[in-house]
């Protein structure tokens, strides 16, 4: 009984997460001593900033129980758009504003189509994503954009430090802190959750569910644009395949985090994205090609989701009964008692 409670309580889940981080870190440190160097750790921080922003955006959509598969397309189009604005000689702030505007418009289109017009979320976002991928080629026909990047100061987002830590990580922490406050401490957050839990009951409670669904898609696209901004800052150019590698870590982070923490939240996504980024960077440091490491990370995601599911808990309960400790079956599953 005790162990089962431990698994289900928030405290136990937090400990389980810290334990997992330590195990993964120890594993990589043993296999590849360079893992714990300053360069490697600051790399993890930078990648986590980009992955984490995309995952944070996705979190809103997952909380309203929808899917957004347009991430890669939005990333590509916004990357080329911001690149084009920078190349045209406008200041960085204008480029960022343009990128965010594009993100909000695209997210608004998806959100409106899904929440108001009732289009199916998966098909709609695949279509919107494909259109965006195509639009990304409009500017240069597919050639990379790098003109004016250095002068614009975009690379400072990658290189500058504050209190010894890269600014992009501060950026991430700030974004998560604000999102946490909004989602878990305000009525807006409660309305988001109510929309996801039971849209019908939420509507009967006077909550405008379509507004929150649309808002979730807009936030998702906007945060994807910010993630892309960090990727552009790191690479110093814009290409149409920028952000193609954002989707898998974002989904893996959201769902692995939810599995570990027992529900989708801003904190669970932070936990998930930390683990996923450590895994991806660790593997790439060890020289594992991305096509294998993606597979391994996806497998870990699957294992994590299974290991932390209710089914697994019931199963552990069953094992304990088998070993003769009757009366520890935990949840009286299925029994009306």
């Amino acid at each position: 009984m005790k162990r089962l409670r431990f698994l289900s309580s928030g405290y136990g889940r937090g400990m389980a997460f810290i334990l997992l981080v330590l195990i993964v870190a120890a594993g990589f440190a043993t296999a590849e001593p360079r893992f714990l160097t300053q360069a490697s750790l600051s790399g993890i921080a930078r990648h986590m900033a980009a992955n984490g922003l995309a995952a944070l955006g996705l979190t809103f959509v997952v909380i309203v129980r929808k899917f957004d598969l347009s991430l890669a397309g939005v990333a590509a189009f916004s990357a080329m758009s911001m690149g084009a604005v920078i190349a045209a000689g406008f200041p960085l702030t204008v480029a960022i504003a343009a990128g965010l505007l594009i993100g909000l418009i695209i997210g608004g289109i998806s959100g409106f189509a899904i929440s108001r017009a009732g289009f199916p979320d998966i098909v709609t976002t695949i279509a919107v994503g494909s259109v965006c991928s195509g639009l990304a080629f409009l500017y240069t026909g597919g050639r990379s954009i790098f003109q004016n990047f250095f002068q614009s100061g975009i690379t400072n987002l990658n290189d500058a430090r504050f209190l010894g830590v890269g600014v992009s990580l501060w950026f991430l922490v700030a974004a998560y802190a604000v999102a946490w406050l909004v989602m878990h401490k305000t009525r807006t957050g409660l309305a988001f959750y109510a929309t996801g839990e039971n849209p019908n009951a939420a509507a009967f409670s006077g909550i405008s569910t379509s507004r929150y669904v649309a808002l979730a898609y807009m936030l998702c696209a906007a945060f994807t644009v910010l993630a892309v901004l960090l990727i552009l800052a790191e690479s110093g150019n814009a290409e149409t395949n920028k952000g193609a590698n954002l989707m898998m870590p974002a989904y893996a982070g959201v769902f692995l985090g939810a599995a570990i923490m027992g529900g989708t939240s801003v904190i669970s996504t932070f936990a998930g994205i930390l683990l996923i980024t450590m895994l991806l960077d660790g593997f790439s440091l060890m020289g594992v090609p991305y096509y294998y490491s993606d597979g391994v990370v996806s497998l870990i995601l699957l294992l994590g989701v299974v290991a932390f599911s209710d089914i697994a808990r019931t199963w552990i309960g069953g094992l304990k009964v088998l070993f003769g400790q009757s009366g520890t079956a935990g949840r009286a599953s299925g029994g009306q008692v």
């Binding site: 009525r187 409660l190 309305a191 959750y193 109510a194 839990e197 039971n198 019908n200 009951a201 939420a202 009967f204 409670s205 006077g206 909550i207």
Partner: peptide, 22 residues
């Protein structure tokens, strides 16, 4: 289907229809 978020406790469901008061 219309009254409750079934996976959520009373603490979540009770304030839903009056978030202003919450």
């Amino acid at each position: 289907t219309e009254g409750l978020a079934l996976d959520r406790p009373a603490l979540f469901n009770v304030p839903l229809a009056n978030l202003r008061r919450a």
